[in-house]
Simulated assay, not measured.
Amino acid sequence: MTAELSILDLFLQASLLVKIVMLILLGMSVVSWALIIKRSQVLSQAKAKAERFEDRFWSGIDLSQLYQEVEARKDSLTGSEQIFHAGFKEFARLHRNNGKAPESVMDGTSRAMRVALSREVDDLETSLPFLATVGSITPYIGLFGTVWGIMHAFIALGAVKQATLAMVAPGIAEALVATAMGLFAAIPAVMFYNKLTNQVAKLEHAYATFMEEFSSILHRQAFAANQE
Protein backbone atom coordinates (compact mmCIF):
# COMPACT_ATOMS: atom_id res chain seq x y z
CA MET A 1 0.00 0.00 0.00
CA THR A 2 2.89 2.34 0.82
CA ALA A 3 4.37 1.82 -2.63
CA GLU A 4 1.05 2.70 -4.24
CA LEU A 5 0.77 5.87 -2.19
CA SER A 6 4.35 6.88 -2.94
CA ILE A 7 3.79 6.41 -6.68
CA LEU A 8 0.63 8.50 -6.45
CA ASP A 9 2.54 11.18 -4.53
CA LEU A 10 5.26 11.19 -7.17
CA PHE A 11 2.64 11.61 -9.88
CA LEU A 12 0.95 14.48 -8.07
CA GLN A 13 4.28 16.23 -7.51
CA ALA A 14 5.46 15.82 -11.11
CA SER A 15 5.46 18.69 -13.58
CA LEU A 16 2.46 19.16 -15.89
CA LEU A 17 4.19 17.71 -18.95
CA VAL A 18 5.34 14.61 -17.06
CA LYS A 19 1.79 14.14 -15.75
CA ILE A 20 0.47 14.32 -19.31
CA VAL A 21 3.05 11.75 -20.42
CA MET A 22 2.08 9.42 -17.56
CA LEU A 23 -1.62 9.74 -18.37
CA ILE A 24 -0.98 9.02 -22.05
CA LEU A 25 0.99 5.91 -21.11
CA LEU A 26 -1.70 4.79 -18.68
CA GLY A 27 -4.38 5.26 -21.33
CA MET A 28 -2.41 3.31 -23.93
CA SER A 29 -1.82 0.52 -21.41
CA VAL A 30 -5.53 0.28 -20.58
CA VAL A 31 -6.52 0.22 -24.27
CA SER A 32 -3.85 -2.39 -24.98
CA TRP A 33 -5.14 -4.71 -22.28
CA ALA A 34 -8.71 -4.28 -23.55
CA LEU A 35 -7.61 -5.19 -27.07
CA ILE A 36 -5.51 -8.11 -25.82
CA ILE A 37 -8.48 -9.60 -23.99
CA LYS A 38 -10.85 -8.99 -26.91
CA ARG A 39 -8.50 -10.36 -29.57
CA SER A 40 -7.66 -13.42 -27.46
CA GLN A 41 -11.36 -14.23 -27.20
CA VAL A 42 -11.95 -13.65 -30.92
CA LEU A 43 -9.05 -15.88 -31.97
CA SER A 44 -10.04 -18.63 -29.55
CA GLN A 45 -13.58 -18.57 -30.89
CA ALA A 46 -12.31 -18.57 -34.49
CA LYS A 47 -10.20 -21.65 -33.82
CA ALA A 48 -13.11 -23.48 -32.18
CA LYS A 49 -15.49 -22.56 -35.04
CA ALA A 50 -13.00 -23.71 -37.66
CA GLU A 51 -12.56 -27.06 -35.93
CA ARG A 52 -16.33 -27.59 -35.59
CA PHE A 53 -16.98 -26.71 -39.23
CA GLU A 54 -14.20 -28.93 -40.54
CA ASP A 55 -15.51 -31.82 -38.46
CA ARG A 56 -18.89 -31.25 -40.11
CA PHE A 57 -17.30 -30.90 -43.55
CA TRP A 58 -15.39 -34.18 -43.29
CA SER A 59 -18.30 -36.06 -41.74
CA GLY A 60 -19.42 -37.22 -45.18
CA ILE A 61 -22.27 -34.76 -45.55
CA ASP A 62 -23.34 -33.83 -49.07
CA LEU A 63 -21.74 -30.53 -50.03
CA SER A 64 -24.99 -29.11 -51.37
CA GLN A 65 -26.70 -29.84 -48.07
CA LEU A 66 -23.84 -28.30 -46.14
CA TYR A 67 -24.03 -25.23 -48.37
CA GLN A 68 -27.73 -24.86 -47.62
CA GLU A 69 -27.00 -25.03 -43.90
CA VAL A 70 -24.30 -22.39 -44.24
CA GLU A 71 -26.39 -20.21 -46.54
CA ALA A 72 -29.14 -20.07 -43.90
CA ARG A 73 -26.81 -18.11 -41.61
CA LYS A 74 -24.64 -16.38 -44.19
CA ASP A 75 -24.64 -13.06 -42.30
CA SER A 76 -22.69 -14.55 -39.40
CA LEU A 77 -20.14 -16.69 -41.26
CA THR A 78 -16.45 -16.52 -40.40
CA GLY A 79 -13.29 -18.43 -41.17
CA SER A 80 -13.55 -21.77 -42.96
CA GLU A 81 -17.32 -21.44 -43.26
CA GLN A 82 -16.99 -18.15 -45.15
CA ILE A 83 -14.34 -19.62 -47.45
CA PHE A 84 -16.53 -22.65 -48.12
CA HIS A 85 -19.58 -20.48 -48.76
CA ALA A 86 -17.74 -18.19 -51.17
CA GLY A 87 -16.09 -21.08 -52.99
CA PHE A 88 -19.15 -23.31 -53.38
CA LYS A 89 -21.38 -20.42 -54.41
CA GLU A 90 -18.96 -19.34 -57.14
CA PHE A 91 -18.38 -22.94 -58.21
CA ALA A 92 -22.11 -23.59 -58.56
CA ARG A 93 -22.63 -20.37 -60.54
CA LEU A 94 -19.72 -20.95 -62.92
CA HIS A 95 -20.43 -24.64 -63.33
CA ARG A 96 -24.04 -23.84 -64.22
CA ASN A 97 -23.04 -21.23 -66.81
CA ASN A 98 -19.77 -22.68 -68.09
CA GLY A 99 -19.72 -26.34 -67.17
CA LYS A 100 -17.85 -27.35 -70.34
CA ALA A 101 -14.76 -25.39 -69.30
CA PRO A 102 -13.70 -26.83 -65.92
CA GLU A 103 -10.42 -24.87 -65.90
CA SER A 104 -12.31 -21.58 -66.01
CA VAL A 105 -14.71 -22.82 -63.34
CA MET A 106 -11.83 -23.71 -61.00
CA ASP A 107 -9.96 -20.46 -61.69
CA GLY A 108 -12.99 -18.40 -60.71
CA THR A 109 -13.69 -20.58 -57.68
CA SER A 110 -10.11 -20.29 -56.48
CA ARG A 111 -10.16 -16.51 -56.84
CA ALA A 112 -13.36 -16.28 -54.81
CA MET A 113 -11.89 -18.37 -52.02
CA ARG A 114 -8.61 -16.43 -51.99
CA VAL A 115 -10.53 -13.18 -51.63
CA ALA A 116 -12.56 -14.67 -48.78
CA LEU A 117 -9.36 -15.94 -47.12
CA SER A 118 -7.74 -12.52 -47.39
CA ARG A 119 -10.73 -10.83 -45.79
CA GLU A 120 -10.85 -13.36 -42.96
CA VAL A 121 -7.16 -12.84 -42.18
CA ASP A 122 -7.63 -9.06 -42.26
CA ASP A 123 -10.43 -9.43 -39.70
CA LEU A 124 -8.25 -11.62 -37.48
CA GLU A 125 -5.44 -9.05 -37.58
CA THR A 126 -7.71 -6.21 -36.46
CA SER A 127 -6.09 -4.13 -33.66
CA LEU A 128 -2.78 -6.02 -33.80
CA PRO A 129 -0.98 -3.06 -35.44
CA PHE A 130 -2.03 -0.93 -32.46
CA LEU A 131 -0.33 -3.36 -30.08
CA ALA A 132 2.80 -3.24 -32.22
CA THR A 133 2.70 0.56 -32.12
CA VAL A 134 2.28 0.61 -28.33
CA GLY A 135 5.17 -1.80 -27.90
CA SER A 136 7.38 0.33 -30.13
CA ILE A 137 6.70 3.88 -28.96
CA THR A 138 5.73 3.75 -25.28
CA PRO A 139 9.31 3.26 -24.02
CA TYR A 140 10.33 6.39 -25.91
CA ILE A 141 7.34 8.35 -24.64
CA GLY A 142 8.29 7.30 -21.10
CA LEU A 143 11.91 8.21 -21.75
CA PHE A 144 10.84 11.64 -22.98
CA GLY A 145 8.94 12.18 -19.74
CA THR A 146 11.97 11.05 -17.76
CA VAL A 147 14.36 13.37 -19.58
CA TRP A 148 11.99 16.30 -19.18
CA GLY A 149 11.45 15.56 -15.49
CA ILE A 150 15.17 15.25 -14.75
CA MET A 151 15.88 18.44 -16.66
CA HIS A 152 13.15 20.19 -14.69
CA ALA A 153 14.63 18.87 -11.41
CA PHE A 154 18.14 20.09 -12.23
CA ILE A 155 16.89 23.50 -13.35
CA ALA A 156 15.15 23.86 -9.99
CA LEU A 157 18.29 22.64 -8.26
CA GLY A 158 20.38 25.28 -9.97
CA ALA A 159 18.28 27.98 -8.36
CA VAL A 160 19.52 27.13 -4.83
CA LYS A 161 22.93 27.88 -3.40
CA GLN A 162 23.53 24.59 -1.61
CA ALA A 163 22.37 21.40 -3.37
CA THR A 164 21.80 18.12 -1.57
CA LEU A 165 20.75 14.66 -2.68
CA ALA A 166 17.53 15.01 -0.70
CA MET A 167 16.59 17.99 -2.83
CA VAL A 168 17.15 16.35 -6.22
CA ALA A 169 16.06 12.78 -5.43
CA PRO A 170 12.26 13.38 -5.47
CA GLY A 171 12.40 15.11 -8.86
CA ILE A 172 14.48 12.33 -10.38
CA ALA A 173 12.17 9.72 -8.86
CA GLU A 174 9.14 11.45 -10.39
CA ALA A 175 10.82 11.39 -13.77
CA LEU A 176 11.81 7.73 -13.56
CA VAL A 177 8.20 6.75 -12.93
CA ALA A 178 7.49 7.80 -16.53
CA THR A 179 10.08 5.32 -17.81
CA ALA A 180 8.64 2.57 -15.63
CA MET A 181 5.14 3.28 -16.96
CA GLY A 182 6.44 3.19 -20.52
CA LEU A 183 7.91 -0.26 -19.94
CA PHE A 184 4.75 -1.36 -18.13
CA ALA A 185 2.75 -0.49 -21.27
CA ALA A 186 5.30 -1.81 -23.80
CA ILE A 187 6.20 -5.23 -22.40
CA PRO A 188 2.69 -6.78 -22.37
CA ALA A 189 1.92 -5.21 -25.75
CA VAL A 190 5.00 -6.79 -27.34
CA MET A 191 4.46 -10.17 -25.67
CA PHE A 192 0.82 -10.46 -26.67
CA TYR A 193 1.41 -9.01 -30.14
CA ASN A 194 3.83 -11.88 -30.81
CA LYS A 195 1.47 -14.42 -29.26
CA LEU A 196 -1.62 -13.20 -31.12
CA THR A 197 0.27 -12.85 -34.40
CA ASN A 198 1.38 -16.46 -34.07
CA GLN A 199 -2.25 -17.52 -33.48
CA VAL A 200 -3.36 -15.60 -36.56
CA ALA A 201 -0.63 -17.28 -38.63
CA LYS A 202 -1.79 -20.73 -37.46
CA LEU A 203 -5.41 -19.92 -38.31
CA GLU A 204 -4.40 -18.56 -41.70
CA HIS A 205 -2.50 -21.79 -42.38
CA ALA A 206 -5.53 -23.85 -41.30
CA TYR A 207 -7.81 -21.81 -43.56
CA ALA A 208 -5.41 -22.12 -46.50
CA THR A 209 -5.10 -25.87 -45.99
CA PHE A 210 -8.87 -26.23 -45.93
CA MET A 211 -9.15 -24.11 -49.07
CA GLU A 212 -6.68 -26.35 -50.92
CA GLU A 213 -8.45 -29.52 -49.81
CA PHE A 214 -11.84 -28.11 -50.77
CA SER A 215 -10.44 -27.00 -54.13
CA SER A 216 -9.26 -30.53 -54.80
CA ILE A 217 -12.75 -31.89 -54.16
CA LEU A 218 -14.35 -29.30 -56.43
CA HIS A 219 -11.70 -29.92 -59.07
CA ARG A 220 -12.59 -33.61 -59.20
CA GLN A 221 -16.29 -32.80 -59.42
CA ALA A 222 -15.77 -30.23 -62.18
CA PHE A 223 -13.74 -32.57 -64.41
CA ALA A 224 -15.92 -35.58 -63.64
CA ALA A 225 -19.01 -33.69 -64.71
CA ASN A 226 -17.24 -32.54 -67.87
CA GLN A 227 -16.45 -36.11 -68.87
CA GLU A 228 -20.04 -37.29 -68.55
Results as ranks from 00 to 15, higher is better:
190 V>N: 10
213 E>L: 12
206 A>H: 10
202 K>H: 11
184 F>G: 06
215 S>T: 14
180 A>D: 03
205 H>N: 13
203 L>D: 05
213 E>K: 15
184 F>W: 06
182 G>K: 07
194 N>T: 10
180 A>L: 10
212 E>L: 12
211 M>G: 08
183 L>I: 15
215 S>A: 15
182 G>R: 08
205 H>I: 06
185 A>Y: 04
185 A>Q: 03
195 K>I: 05
199 Q>D: 14
200 V>C: 03
204 E>G: 14
208 A>T: 15
196 L>W: 01
201 A>D: 13
206 A>S: 12
211 M>Q: 11
210 F>C: 08
190 V>Y: 05
204 E>W: 02
183 L>T: 09
191 M>F: 05
191 M>Y: 04
195 K>N: 12
214 F>I: 07
196 L>E: 07
213 E>D: 14
203 L>W: 01
205 H>Q: 11
195 K>T: 09
200 V>I: 07
203 L>Y: 02
186 A>E: 03
207 Y>F: 15
183 L>A: 09
204 E>F: 01
184 F>N: 02
198 N>H: 13
187 I>H: 08
188 P>I: 11
209 T>P: 01
206 A>K: 14
193 Y>M: 03
183 L>Q: 10
194 N>E: 08
211 M>W: 00
197 T>E: 10
185 A>F: 04
184 F>P: 00
203 L>S: 07
183 L>H: 05
213 E>M: 10
215 S>P: 00
203 L>I: 08
206 A>M: 04
212 E>R: 11
201 A>I: 00
210 F>E: 08
181 M>N: 02
194 N>Q: 07
181 M>D: 01
187 I>S: 10
199 Q>H: 13
186 A>S: 12
207 Y>L: 15
190 V>A: 09
